[in-house]
Write a protein that binds this DNA or RNA. Structure first.
Lengths: 210, 210
DNA sequence: GGCCGAATGTACCAGTTAGTACAAACGGGG
DNA sequence: CCCCGTTTGTACTAACTGGTACATTCGGCC
């Protein structure tokens, strides 16, 4: 394969990579099929050959993005003996993780604008999300057993609080940043913002139940 | 004015109202000028007469939406003597407020996809957001003075945590709901979700500082 | 080395879409 | 009751946009 002039796999993955950028940048309706094609070494024709339609391409982008992110998430392996340390580490690593994946977060925001229409058509994504919940369950269980954590909180609640904070940082940085005159994306501010989510979760979980 | 066959003010505000719905539903590029016009009693011509362009209309929608929401927010007046009660009430009222304004939250999400390009062109929105911060400042100050609240947290941090949680509920309900099989918008679940943000903020603020 | 299906490129199209030229109708002030 | 600027409606267009018909080229296999 001298120059890979014909390489189905490469063509397909190049299209997917460029489409991810463009959809994340402009949204589904804002993205232009012609622009995606122009940014690759191949042509628009290939989009239809491999993905059938603009929508098919978008669905493929979404699916690949979720798989990639869940893959990366599995690296978050918190094995602190102390549940308090563990939950803080999980929250702060989640923060770091989100800060580093803003294209993904933009895609998720776009998908929510579409009320989840496309994500619902992708099989097997749910399963992919279960490990995250499992890890949390386990930490919470230990923390409760040791009498460190309140009992009226479940894994979904905690995941919701952490996700909300971490996603918001990235997803709403422009409006929030403008209105309150802060740059949430500034590297200088990151240690503080990271510590806050740790403090929030630890303070919440270790407080006595209502 | 028998039948208001000619009523500049009504024409303008009807366009704005319909445009708000359509932009919130479909995003800036997804929205169709013709559709907006068709849903009013007037014609597309009027959009260009009053707003100049699709973008001008979108900007007007965004501005009006922000003004409306800040107006409504001023009703959130928490006058509990106890800072702990006050901060919990503020968090929970913010939750209720967001749940009731999902069109606005969708517009904000859309604006963030556009990296805040349009909101930055609107004068005076910043000023509009200051009261929210002022109220928080005051509650925190009292809480610290009474030795109830930790000292390493400022109003922006608290506002960020509350906003993130409340916005996420609505903005990301579809993807989160699908992946974790919960309906965040279900009225049955609301009391719990409302209590969670109260617990989170109170637990966090009343925990000892790091 | 020639056959054949997979892979690719070119040129094109039909429907859509933001925006506008032109003119008419309205209604308040004189 | 008529004049004139504001407001409104109709019909149109130029550019864009997703999608496709058709031809061609490549490369592995016998």
């Amino acid at each position: 394969m001298a120059e890979a002039r014909r390489d189905a796999e490469r063509t397909r993955s190049e299209l997917l990579a460029v489409a991810t950028e463009v959809f994340a940048e402009d949204g589904f309706s804002g993205a232009r099929v012609d622009e995606i094609a122009a940014r690759t070494r191949t042509t628009k024709r290939m989009i239809y050959y491999y993905f059938g339609s603009k929508e098919g391409l978008y669905r493929a982008v979404l699916e690949e993005a979720y798989r990639g992110i869940r893959e990366a998430e599995r690296a978050i392996d918190v094995d602190h003996a102390d549940p308090v340390d563990a939950i803080r580490a999980l929250a702060e690593l989640t923060y770091d993780h989100h800060v580093g994946h803003d294209a993904f977060i933009r895609l998720v925001a776009i998908e929510n604008i579409h009320r989840g229409t496309f994500i619902r058509q992708i099989e097997g994504l749910r399963t992919l999300s279960q490990p995250a919940k499992g890890l949390l369950d386990e930490i919470l269980e230990r923390g409760r057993a040791d009498g460190l954590f309140r009992a009226d909180v479940d894994a979904i609640d905690v995941h919701l609080v952490i996700s909300a904070y971490c996603v918001f940082q990235v997803a709403n940085q422009y409006t929030f940043g403008h209105l309150f005159d802060v740059d949430l994306a500034s590297p200088d501010r990151r240690p503080h913002l990271r510590a806050v989510i740790g403090d929030v979760v630890v303070g919440w979980l270790t407080a006595p139940a209502r």
